[in-house]
C-alpha cells in the first residue's frame, strides 16, 4: 500500500481527520524551508504538500504568490526541490509528500524524467493545478508507471455532469477546492462544502481533502468534521513572510511560528470529531 493510502487508512481507523500542511519548497531559503519541512510531521502534519515554486502561479492568492517568489529569489529550482524531499526522507519514511504546483516547470524538466526522479526522491503524489483531466494524460501515465498518485481537483463548479470526468482515473485522494477563488482569499462555507462532499462521496471511495479557504483553527475543525483531511497553506506561509522582512530575516522565528501554527491547526483538525 502507498504511503498516502496507508495514512488515510490509519486516520480512518482512528476516526479522525488528517491535517495537510502546505509550504513552498525553498521559502524563504533552502535551509530554513528544509528545517520547517522536517519539523512538520512532529507539528501534526499527516501529509505534506510541498509547493514547486513558479513565476506565474495563477490559482494562488497573494500569500502563496509571495512565498513562491521568495523561494525563486533564493535560488530554488526543481532539482533543489527534489533534493529537499531526499533530505526529508533520510529521517521520515512514513509521512506522505505531495508536490503541488504548475505544469511548466515539469514540462521543462521533462515529464518522464521528472516522474522517475520524483518517485526515487521519495515523493508520493502530484497536484498540478493547471492540468485538468482533459490535459493530464501525458503526466498521469508516466506518474502511474513511477508509482506516483496524480491527485485530481474538484471545485464548486464541478457539477454532476462533470464529476465523473474528474473521478475517472483519479488516484490517491481527491482535493476539493472549497471556494470559488484563489488560495487564501475567501472563507469556506461549511454547509455548501458538506453538500458538495456528499455528492463526491456518492461517486467515489477515494478520501477527500478540502483546502483553499481554511485559515483558522475553527475553520480546520469545521472541515475536519466533514472531510477526510483539511489543507492549510496560505496561513502557514504568511507566517514565513512575517519573519522575512527585507531588512533581515529571523529564521528561527519563522521556523517556530510555522510549526506552532501547524500544531494548533493540526490539533483542531485531529480533535474535531471527539
Amino acid at each position: 500500500m502507498s504511503r498516502i493510502a496507508t495514512r488515510f487508512a490509519e486516520l480512518k481507523q482512528q476516526n479522525r481527520a488528517g491535517f495537510i500542511a502546505f509550504i513552498s519548497a525553498g521559502d524563504p531559503d533552502y535551509e530554513t524551508s528544509l528545517e520547517i519541512f522536517r519539523g512538520l510531521p512532529a507539528a501534526g502534519a499527516d501529509i505534506i504538500e510541498l509547493g514547486m515554486p513558479f513565476t506565474d502561479p495563477m490559482a494562488e492568492g497573494p500569500a502563496i504568490q509571495a512565498s513562491s517568489l521568495r523561494a525563486l529569489k533564493a535560488g530554488q529550482t526543481m532539482k533543489r526541490t527534489l533534493q529537499m524531499v531526499r533530505e526529508f526522507r533520510k529521517q521520515d519514511s512514513r509521512t506522505p509528500v505531495v508536490l503541488m504546483g504548475y505544469y511548466n516547470p515539469i514540462h521543462s524538466y521533462g515529464v518522464d524524467r521528472f516522474a522517475t526522479d520524483a518517485a526515487s526522491a521519495g515523493v508520493d503524489g502530484l497536484i498540478i493545478v493547471d492540468l485538468p483531466p482533459e490535459e493530464d494524460a501525458e503526466l498521469r501515465h508516466p506518474a502511474a508507471r513511477a508509482g506516483l498518485d496524480l491527485i485530481r481537483l474538484a471545485t464548486p463548479t464541478t457539477d454532476a455532469r462533470r464529476l465523473p470526468t474528474v473521478i475517472e482515473g483519479a488516484t490517491g485522494f481527491l482535493y476539493y477546492v472549497s471556494i470559488m477563488g484563489v488560495t487564501g482569499t475567501k472563507t469556506i462555507a461549511p454547509e455548501e462544502v458538506a453538500a458538495s462532499l456528499a455528492r463526491i462521496r456518492a461517486a467515489t471511495d477515494l478520501p477527500v481533502a478540502v483546502g483553499f479557504g481554511i485559515k483558522t483553527e475553527a475553520d480546520a475543525a469545521k472541515v475536519a468534521r466533514i472531510a477526510d483531511a483539511a489543507v492549510v497553506g496560505s496561513a502557514l506561509v504568511a507566517e514565513i513572510s512575517r519573519f522575512s522582512a527585507p531588512d533581515g530575516k529571523n529564521v528561527a522565528g519563522a521556523v517556530k511560528a510555522v510549526l506552532d501554527l501547524s500544531a494548533r491547526l493540526a490539533g483542531a483538525a485531529h480533535n474535531a470529531r471527539l
Binding site: 462533470r162 477546492v177 470559488m180
Partner: peptide, 14 residues
C-alpha cells in the same frame, strides 16, 4: 493550444 486551466474554470470554458 489546449486547455491548461484550473478545474474551477474548466466547466466555464466548456
Amino acid at each position: 493550444g489546449g486547455r491548461y486551466v484550473a478545474e474551477t474554470l474548466m466547466p466555464l470554458i466548456l
